[in-house]
Amino acid sequence: MADDKKTLEEILNLAAAQFKVPREKLTADDDFFKTLGIDSLQALDLLTRLEHHFNVELPDYELQGVSDFRTLASRIQARL
């Protein structure tokens, strides 16, 4: 559980820095497409950055329908 929280925190920090959104505006259950204002190409960019950051491989079909940070964190956690 502690690891889940740490993963989530790292994702939120990375997303805030990359898309220049104040960190305090991002919450775990936000729809990141809406909150970050990103399209599908930028989502792929985020996916690549997350893979490098966590040193994991995330098949994109595993992320199908995932649009909130919490679920994204759990998908990454499952690959760590």
Partner: peptide
């Protein structure tokens, strides 16, 4: 209109 047309 999906935000993810490039995703599977």
């Amino acid at each position: 209109k999906d935000a993810q047309p490039y995703l599977p």
